[in-house]
Design a protein around this nucleic acid. Structure first.
Lengths: 354, 354
DNA sequence: GTTAGCACTCGCCACCCGAGAGTGCTAACC
DNA sequence: GGTTAGCACTCTCGGGTGGCGAGTGCTAAC
C-alpha cells in the first residue's frame, strides 16, 4: 500500500524491467520465480529485498500472482500482456533462422495445399510449439469449370473448379441409371450453364432450371443445387482448411501434463469457424496478434496463447499463420517467427495470385 | 516344471479360460491381475492356488509376465495373440451399435473425402481408441480431364481429374508470362493430348512433345511432365490419404502417460507408406487383421496394437479402415466394430465404383 | 528509498512403517 | 495325480514425519 500512486500510466522502468525478468525466467524454467534467483541471474543492481517490494507492488497491480505464501511469483495473463505490448514492434528474426526457414520454403513446386502444411510444420519446428496455417482463401470466386463424370451405377462425380484455384469434389446420387453418353451430355450442358458464374449467378440458374417448361433432366437440377450449396459454403467460411503441426510439442509442456485442456484445444482448432471468427480483426490491423490465455473468447483456450498473423492481399486471397503454445511461451521469438513466415506467405501469394 | 507336456498344440481348455479371464480383467482395469481377484470375479470353480499353478505354467509358455515378484500377472503380446486367435471368427457387433454406426453413415451426400473422415470418427467414438481410414484408391487410373488456368503473373493452376474420381491440383511456374488466351489454348491442347491416357500413355506423349520439331510451347512440356509425375506418384502409392480421429482417446490410456511413444506413433501414422506396406497382406486375406505390439514391423509401433480391415473390390478401389490403441485393448469389440465398418465401406464402394 | 536481518510459511523429499495383495512352495486331501 | 489349504516371503502403495531450502513479509537501520 505504501507507494501506490493510482496512476494508470506506464510502470516505472525498474518495475517493468523486473516484470520482464520474471517473465523470461519463468518462461525458461516453468518454476515460480523468487527474488533471490532474480538478482543473482539478472544482475539488476538492487537487493532481493527491493525486488520483493517491487514484486509485491506488481502483484497488487495484478501483473503477478503466487501459487502459495512461500512460493516465487508467476506472471498473470495481464502480466504477459504488458510484456508483449512492450516488444510487439521489435526485433527481426535472427538471420540464421531466417535462412533456415527460407530454405524450407525453397521448392515451391508443390501442390498448393502443401505450402500450408509446410508453413505449419516450419513454424512448429522453429518455435517448438504448435504451428497453424490456413490455406489462402479468395473472398469470392466464380466458376471456372464444372465436370460431371460417371462414378457408380447410380452415382456421379461432380468436380467444380473455381477461378482462384480451389477445387471441390462431391459425389452425387441419381434417381435412375445414366449411360456414359447421357452423363457426358449433362456435363457439357452444365458447363455451359454455369461457366463464369458467381454463387449468386448459379442460384439464378437453379431457379430457372426449376421453373423450365418442359422440365429439364432432374440430374441437371440436382447437380446445380449441389453447386449452389458448395458455393454458399465457400463464401460463408472465412478460412479454408486449417493445417496444424507439432501439437505434440505443446503436449510436452509441463502445464499440460495429461489434462483435459489439450483435448479441448485440439477440438477448437479442428473447427474452422474459430479461426474464421478471428480473421476480421487480424486482417484489419495486418499485424501480429497475440491472444493470451483468458483473453481468448473461447473458454476452451484459456490455458493457451496464440500468436497469429494474417497474410495475403485483402480482396484477393487471405489466410492466417501462427503458433499455439502454453501461455508460458517465448513470445519474442514466436512473434518474430510468425511475422517472418507471414511475410514469406505474402510473397507467395503475390507470386501466385495477381 | 510339474505338468510340462511340451506339446505345441492348443492349451487345455481350463488354461485358456484362465488366460482369457486374465486378459479381460487386465483390459478392464489396467492392473496386474492376481489369482484371488480372478476366482472371486470370474467364478472359475477352482481355488486361487490352482489358478496360480496354471498361471505359472502360462508364464513358462510365454503368455504371461509379471512386473515384479509379488505383483499379479500381465499378458504378453504372445498372450494377446492367442486370445485374439480364439475370437477372430466370432461375434457380430451388437445391434444397437450397428444401428448407431449406420445412423452416422446416414447421409452419404458428402464430399467423397468426408466419408473417410466419417469412418475414422465413427470408429474412434465406437471403440474409444483411435480410428483410422484411408480413402479408397483405384489400382490405376486414366486421365479424365486436364485443366490449366491462370493463377498469378507467372504461375498456372493445373488440375487433373482421374477417371475413378481422384482430383489433383498443383501450381506450375512458367518461365514467361502468358495471356489468358494463351493459357486457354494450352489448356485445350493439353486436354486433347492427354484425355483418356494412362500413366504410361502420358509418358509417351511427353517423349513425343520433347522431340517435336518445331518445338512445342515449353509450358505444354512442363505441364505434361508434371502430369506424368502426378500419375507416377498416384500409381506408386498403395493408399490415398490417411485420416485418423480420436488419437486423444489413446492418449488417455495410462500406458501413454506422457511418453515419447505417442509422438512416434503419430509420426508413423502420418506416413502413408506405413499403411501402404500393409495393404497387400490385408487385401489378400480380406479379413480383419490384428497386429499386436511387437508383431509390428515398425519399431515405433511396438507399444500399440492395430485392428485393420481392407474394404473395396480388388482391382477396382481399395482402402483400409481400422483402429489403433494400446496393446491393452478391448479386442473383441474392436474387431467386431472394424469388421462392421469395413462392411459398410464395402457397400459404399459397390454403390459408387462399379 | 533501499537494504540487512529475522521470524515464519510452506512445498518437497527422503525415510520409515504398516497394510495389503500376491506369490511360490509344501504338505495334506480327495 | 490333480487340487487345495496353509504359510512364509516379497514387494508396492499410502500415510505420516521431519529436515531442508526457497521464499516471503515486516521492521529497523542506513
Amino acid at each position: 500500500m505504501a507507494r501506490r500512486k493510482d496512476r494508470p500510466g506506464p510502470l516505472e522502468p525498474r518495475s517493468e524491467a523486473i516484470l520482464r525478468a520474471i517473465i523470461e525466467e519463468y518462461v525458461a524454467t516453468a518454476q515460480p520465480v523468487g527474488s533471490q534467483a532474480l538478482v543473482t541471474r539478472y544482475g539488476l543492481g538492487v537487493s532481493p529485498a527491493t525486488v520483493r517490494n517491487v514484486m509485491a507492488e506488481l502483484e497488487n497491480l495484478g501483473f503477478l500472482d503466487h501459487p502459495h505464501t512461500s512460493a516465487g511469483r508467476v506472471p498473470t495473463d495481464k502480466g504477459y500482456r504488458l510484456y508483449v505490448e512492450s516488444i510487439t514492434d521489435a526485433v527481426a528474426l535472427a538471420p540464421v533462422e531466417q535462412l533456415m526457414i527460407r530454405h524450407q520454403f525453397g521448392q515451391i513446386d508443390y501442390a498448393t495445399d502443401q505450402w500450408f502444411r509446410l508453413a505449419a510444420a516450419t513454424l512448429a519446428t522453429a518455435t517448438h510449439v504448435a504451428g497453424i496455417a490456413t490455406a489462402a482463401k479468395p473472398p469470392s470466386c466464380r466458376i471456372r469449370r464444372v465436370d460431371l463424370a460417371p462414378a457408380g451405377p447410380r452415382t456421379l462425380s461432380l468436380v467444380v473448379i473455381l477461378t482462384e484455384g480451389p477445387v471441390r469434389q462431391v459425389v452425387l446420387a441419381t434417381e435412375r441409371p445414366y449411360t456414359d453418353e447421357q452423363v457426358e451430355d449433362a456435363s457439357r450442358t452444365l458447363a455451359q450453364l454455369l461457366a463464369g458464374r458467381s454463387a449468386h449467378g448459379v442460384s439464378n440458374v437453379l431457379a430457372e432450371l426449376g421453373a423450365a417448361q418442359p422440365p429439364v433432366d432432374p440430374v441437371l437440377v440436382r447437380a446445380t443445387a449441389r453447386v449452389v450449396q458448395l458455393m454458399r459454403e465457400f463464401d460463408a467460411s472465412a478460412v479454408e482448411d486449417v493445417f496444424s503441426d507439432g501439437l505434440l510439442n505443446v503436449m510436452d509442456a509441463p502445464e499440460f501434463a495429461r489434462s483435459e485442456t489439450l483435448r479441448r484445444v485440439f477440438g477448437v482448432l479442428q473447427d474452422r469457424a474459430y479461426l474464421g471468427d478471428l480473421m476480421p480483426q487480424l486482417t484489419r490491423s495486418g499485424k501480429v496478434h497475440v491472444i493470451i490465455g483468458t483473453e481468448n473468447e473461447h473458454s476452451g483456450m484459456h490455458d493457451v496463447s496464440l500468436v497469429l498473423a494474417p497474410y495475403g492481399r485483402a480482396g484477393r486471397a487471405v489466410g492466417v499463420v501462427g503458433v499455439l503454445g502454453p501461455t508460458r511461451m517465448a513470445y519474442p521469438h514466436a512473434i518474430s517467427t510468425v511475422r517472418y513466415v507471414s511475410g514469406l506467405m505474402n510473397e507467395l501469394v503475390d507470386h501466385l495470385y495477381v
